[in-house]
Nucleic acid binder design. Structure first.
Lengths: 213, 213
DNA sequence: AGATCTTTCAACACAGGAGTTGACAACAAA
DNA sequence: TTTGTTGTCAACTCCTGTGTTGAAAGATCT
């Protein structure tokens, strides 16, 4: 076999899937997530290589393209998020409790999956403009997620545990905004713990910030 | 004078400031704002020129660089936003009423300054990574804005009109998130009016979404 | 009409980033 | 020791986007 043809060699290595190879690959993705989080979409593969202390060309032994790298990061974040939400939907809690659990799950997931989640939120707008099969699927999944939350809110209105004098589509956007905006300010070093952040958001969303008369 | 040296000629035209020139320049910025809103940071000057039905090189008669164009868009949005907030702070309303007014002002400003605001929010993260004098100032202004809101919230806690069992820094981020997230979903064609959106957000933030016992 | 200013544009130079090639060192296996 | 495999890298090619040049049409004034 030729010594080069890096693409073929990458695919072969991925096929075989030795632990060492996969570990290194995962390490690369994680490092890349951090760099992307820091530098945003202007990040170059040179930045990523530098962060890993390696050469730009070496990256191609593990990933096919810059875009593929971004996809790996985003997919990890999305999968995790969706799985958590589905579990909650199926649970037997009351609607307000479901919302509380949902907020908790999203905020904690955010903190745990910190750089990935950040990149996901920051990239999703750009992804929506693409038309690759992958992009279409990510958008579809995101839409499903929103639909799921909307379903919970409607259910609450129907059964009378949530106010029905407010348009549910706007309310759901307000909820997503509260949480997703974290990508702008949350850092692992933030003074409040993720638990405290989740509690605060749930309290406001469900009970409001004004003192009750 | 040489027929070229477009930079000098641009500066001269800007200096003289004929209405026709400034109008055309403003038109360019507005069109650019729309394109940037649509295509995000990947927008090329070619896209902008196409939207205007002109040639890429012609743009340089009105703006010095792509970055300068972006700055013009962002500055317009920021100036307007800050002015509105200051007026409210000085007003004589009660704290909860101030918050209601603030939310209203932000949401309505958002709708009115639609593409500019969108670009501002989308670019601010990138701007924060730059170190030009201009970038530093924008970040500083943004910080002041946040400080202003924080001040209102603290005042409310002190006087007892707002709950003081929640960390005010997280609360303020939740509030900003609710509103700023609009850049992801608000379009002029959105079914609910800006007034209705503002009312909904204020109701939730102040009173909560759960039905009172 | 002739001179002059305003606005546009085709063509170019330049820079930087993505992805590829072909080899090479290190280590393992035979 | 020879052979093969794994991971790395210097040196390309190719492409795309920015900003500049020099000139040429249109508009305006005299």
């Amino acid at each position: 076999m030729a010594s080069s043809g890096i693409e073929a060699r990458r695919k072969a290595a991925l096929e075989v899937g030795s632990a060492a190879y996969l570990d290194r690959r995962a390490e690369l993705i994680k490092a890349a997530a951090n760099v992307f989080r820091e530098r945003g979409h202007e990040t170059t593969l040179r930045d990523v290589a530098d962060a890993l202390g390696t050469e730009r060309a070496s990256l191609y032994y593990y990933i096919g393209s810059r875009e593929e790298l971004l996809q790996a990061i985003v997919s990890e974040a999305l999968d995790r998020d969706l799985a958590a939400a589905r579990t909650i939907k199926r649970s037997k809690k009351s609607t307000p409790e479901k919302i509380r659990a949902l907020i908790s799950s999203m905020v904690l997931g955010y903190a745990e999956y910190y750089p990935h989640m950040n990149v996901y939120i920051e990239q999703i707008g750009r992804i929506a403009r693409q038309e690759s099969a992958w992009a279409t699927e990510v958008i579809e999944e995101t839409r499903k997620y929103e639909e799921l939350v909307l379903g919970i809110l409607r259910q609450g209105q129907k059964e009378g545990s949530l106010r029905d004098d407010l348009p549910v589509n706007v309310v759901s956007m307000a909820l997503f905004g509260t949480i997703n905006w974290m990508y702008r300010w949350y850092r692992p070093s933030y003074p409040e713990t993720p638990e405290e952040i989740a509690r605060t958001m749930a309290e406001i969303f469900l009970g409001g910030f004004a003192v009750k008369p």
